[in-house]
Design a protein around this nucleic acid. Structure first.
Lengths: 144, 144
DNA sequence: TATTTTACTACTAGGATAATAGGAATTGCA
DNA sequence: TGCAATTCCTATTATCCTAGTAGTAAAATA
């Protein structure tokens, strides 16, 4: 399951994608109201997205946030990874932040790894295969 | 990410699959030692698996646990669902325990749903497509 | 310099996680 | 009948995570 924070992040990113434009800066307040996200919480999320180069921010008057790249170039998985961590089901099957499972007896002969690896690849294929632009377009139609 | 509990459950289930036999009852102590799982914690897990008809237990002397069905008929997803809950990334995309996302403005026009639905299907295809018997066989070879 | 807006730091309530402890109930065997 | 093995049940605990809230600092612009 995603955390609320992760979903908020994705919704905010999609909002920015929907309003993306060369010099179009969107206010945190606007996103918070439109998406019903607690404003202060959203600010913290946007800072994390900024630190991870998903969004760019500008302070002061006429400031706000915008995507760092075109919506077509940012995957849903990119946003989720930043806020909720790796897509994998275990540290040992993560590609972006691989690490040992502390409760694993012997990684070399782990019975679970092959399936969990396949699961990770399947999740990543979907979430990395769908850009924010795709999400904007997908409203209403659940096929694709 | 799976919880430790979920991984313990899956490892225990695979252990039972490896030692599956008509009247073969395996002790919790044996599984705990072989898989390095805290015994008391494992007992609680096995009780949950029993309540959800994944394993069958027998008390007293010569007691123990065994799978309720042939290892070929129990999917990795079945075990994970019992211990860690739905495979879906959000309640609204769960097939086995569907529910509303409390932070969702309007489910009908949710921008995230289509992708999350696809993600769920992808995860489920892998985890439901691999039985405990498959996991037993997959040791060593990570392809398949 | 006043106002807008993001950025930063600190704090908190509640719940989940990962156990541990102790004993009760059940079964088989001598 | 009683003892030992084993699962089953009820509590309790320490630690971390989640989902925020509050207040203030810093920056940019008009």
């Amino acid at each position: 399951m995603l955390t609320s924070k992760g979903k908020y992040a994705l919704r905010a990113a999609v909002y920015l994608a929907r309003h993306h434009g060369a010099e179009n800066w969107t206010l945190a307040t606007e996103i918070a109201e439109a998406e019903a996200i607690p404003k202060k919480f959203l600010e913290a999320i946007l800072v994390e997205l900024r630190d991870n180069h998903i969004v760019t921010s500008r302070r002061g008057r006429n400031g706000g946030y915008r995507l760092s790249q075109a919506p077509e170039r940012i995957g849903a998985g990119d946003v989720i990874r930043v806020i909720d961590g790796p897509l994998a089901l275990t540290p040992c099957t993560s590609r972006t932040q691989p690490g040992p499972c502390h409760d694993c007896v012997d990684p070399a002969i782990c019975t679970l790894r092959p399936v969990l690896q396949k699961a990770r690849d399947a999740i990543a294929a979907v979430l990395d295969g769908n850009s924010l632009a795709d999400l904007v377009d997908s409203v209403g139609h659940s096929a694709g």
